[in-house]
């Protein structure tokens, strides 16, 4: 019996150190890992394709005046599916390998807002992207009247922390 325990101990010793050094040494993710979706605002044409396909409706679009379209990305609820990057006709969105996203106030830190200069429709006076403006405005997430966060109008009283 002692022999088997000794054998086990020797086996364990032979394995050596397996623990990752991670927080003190970088450990890059695999080739096809999808992290933080980074937006190149200068490439974006404001077509709204990303808002239409985002499953968590993290991307919302408002027209704030006749030639400015405001695109708000509340990436705190992004699930890193990569659909926005896939659908974007201008390749303005790239899925980076950034996964170190923890912060103490994610709701503010994960917010990406961009204001895109758009053409104005001569008939209705609203913003549009020249190719096909008509179908896109019927999509969910497109031209939301309010930017809504999760838990915004929950009927529950929040618990106060000891700090407050």
């Amino acid at each position: 019996m002692i022999g088997s325990k000794l054998k086990e101990a020797i086996l364990c010793l032979r394995t050596g150190l397996v623990t990752l050094k991670y927080p003190f040494a970088p450990h890059p993710p695999e080739e096809d890992f999808r992290g933080y979706p980074e937006v190149d605002v200068d490439k974006c044409i404001g077509c709204g394709g990303c808002a239409a396909v985002c499953p968590s409706r993290a991307i919302m679009i408002q027209d704030i005046d006749q030639n400015t379209r405001r695109i708000v990305r509340l990436l705190e609820r992004c699930i890193y599916c990569g659909r926005c990057a896939e659908v974007c006709p201008e390749d303005a969105i790239t899925m980076t390998k950034q996964f170190e996203l923890s912060s103490d106030k994610a709701r503010e830190d994960m917010e990406v807002e961009s204001q895109i200069f758009m053409a104005t429709c001569q008939r209705c006076g609203r913003c549009y992207t020249p190719p096909s403006p008509v179908d896109k405005i019927m999509e969910p997430g497109f031209r939301d009247d309010e930017i809504k966060r999760g838990g915004q109008d929950s009927p529950y009283e929040p618990v106060k922390s000891a700090e407050e």
Partner: peptide, 17 residues
Amino acid sequence: VGGVDAILPVDYHIPGC
């Protein structure tokens, strides 16, 4: 409810899915 910070004071967030 939509997020833990709607009901509890959250100190750190780790996003990812």
